[in-house]
Design a protein around this nucleic acid. Structure first.
Length: 154
DNA sequence: GCCAACGTTGGC
DNA sequence: GCCAACGTTGGC
């Protein structure tokens, strides 16, 4: 069982959108960074826990929790010319990008704000608190998860 | 909207 | 394979 943080822009798709999906499940598509892709393809496993992190919005921070409900498969949007995530160099025989499915578990009553995460002494190595770290998929240690989950649960 | 910090691209 | 130019990310 591993722990992750997935970034999203809630104006496009946030924790509430996930909650309202049929089956409360959604493909986590559109990841177009190789390091993040490698995490998705190779290391994110069924049943892993995921912090849903809202970026580029009023309330930047960890907004809720989801669970991985399907392991990596080729991201369909890479083959769709209509998609903003279309990649003309990707083919079904040689997919370049992958996605997983995530299922809603919990929306926190209050988003655990980035400034509060930064103020947590034990959480200094997490990607979102490190300057210039822009990965959209990043690992979270169990220690970090426990501390942040407790803080977010109030 | 600004801008620093990255990642990617493409000419050589 | 170098590296400058360019595009994107993301907090503020």
């Amino acid at each position: 069982m591993a722990y992750w943080l997935f970034k999203t822009e809630p104006d496009a798709f946030g924790i509430q959108d996930l909650k309202e999906r049929p089956g409360q499940t959604e493909p986590w598509d559109g990841v177009r960074n190789y390091q993040a892709r490698n995490f998705l393809r190779d290391e994110v496993k069924l049943g892993d826990n995921v912090f849903i992190y809202h970026s580029s919005c009023k309330q930047v921070g960890i907004a809720g929790v989801a669970e991985v409900s399907r392991e990596a498969y080729p991201d369909p949007s890479q083959f769709n010319p209509e998609s903003r995530y279309y990649d003309p160099k990707a083919t079904p025989d040689a997919p370049r990008w992958f996605c997983v499915d995530v299922t809603f578990k919990e929306a926190f009553a209050k988003t655990l704000l980035l400034k509060d995460i930064k103020a947590t002494p034990q959480v200094t190595e997490l990607g979102v608190v490190k300057k210039g770290h822009r990965l959209s998929i990043m690992p979270v240690t169990k220690t970090e998860w426990d501390i942040l989950y407790a803080a977010a649960s109030g």
